[in-house]
Amino acid sequence: MSVDVKTVKRVARLARIAVSEEDAERMTSELNAILGFVEQLNEVDVSGVEPMTSVTPMEMKKRLDVVTDGSKAADIVANAPATEENFFLVPKVVE
């Protein structure tokens, strides 16, 4: 499978990365090189093989349902580019 410039622009939109016409063209050939490389996976017979869901066989650890952390609003917003009273500020999203 290979991608065209139109697909690359659509994927960039999904990934929320602004691309110029020039970027999109360069990315198209780079992405096609990688997609061409991974194509060889199709020759592997995977019938009856489950996809890997866990690297090491282990049961998901569960902790007690109690509060172990919190009350750190100032710490959480400390690195944000724009805040007001412990809220993150973003451009207006609702008209």
Binding site: V44, V46, V49, E50, P51, M52, T53
Partner: peptide, 14 residues
Amino acid sequence: AYYLQAQKVRNLIK
């Protein structure tokens, strides 16, 4: 076609 196939191959590698 891609992700599921790759995770199956990953199990074969393991």
